[in-house]
Structures are given as C-alpha cells and as structure tokens.
C-alpha cells in the first residue's frame, strides 16, 4: 500500500484543506471580534426604547455589523410579537 502510494503519489493535498478551513474561521472571527464596542450598548438602548411602544424582549432585537468590501452595514432586526399590545 505505502509502496504503491509512494510510486503513484496519492498523498493527500492537505494545504488546500487548511486554506479552506482558515478562510472560514477567520471570516467568522473577524465578524465577531472586530465588532465595535458600542454594539451591546446600542442593543440595550434600542430594546429600552422599542419596548416602550411594543412588547419586545431582549432576544427579539438583533444588532449586527457586517462588512462587505469597503461598505459597513449595520443591521438591526426586530422581531415583533404576533399581536402588538399597546
């Protein structure tokens, strides 16, 4: 087996696996680690304001900062309850 693979060079190319794994994990960690410090605070304040008018919990508001090339997108996702209560 090892003699055969020696002659036919069936050695796995692991470098490409490494590159693929790294590009995924680095993209993911850049997103989470490099978020500006104000995001949690912004999220708290948004919850405070919105819950004055709509019955939303802390988990219903998601604040995310995404980067696409040179453009930063601040995404605020608010899940409203099915029957808004005034």
């Amino acid at each position: 087996m090892s003699l055969l693979s020696y002659f036919f060079g069936s050695k796995q190319k692991t470098a490409s696996v490494a590159k693929e794994r790294l590009s995924l994990i680095i993209a993911h960690e850049r997103g989470t680690n490099r978020a500006p410090d104000f995001l949690p605070e912004l999220q708290r304040e948004l919850i405070a304001v919105i819950s004055k008018y709509v019955n939303v919990g802390p988990d219903d508001i998601k604040v995310q900062l995404e980067k696409q090339d040179n453009c930063e997108i601040l995404e605020v996702n608010i899940t409203l309850p099915e029957q808004p209560q005034r």
Binding site: K11, K13, L22, S23, I26
Partner: peptide
C-alpha cells in the same frame, strides 16, 4: 512541502491575512 501540497504557500497566508 508547499510544492507537494502539504504546506500553505506564502500567497495563501497573505491572501488570508
């Protein structure tokens, strides 16, 4: 090792970072 596909090339590293 880079040529054999066992090691990331410097271009890969640069592209990633």
């Amino acid at each position: 090792r880079v040529e054999d596909g066992e090691m990331l090339s410097y271009k890969d590293v640069q592209e990633l970072l």
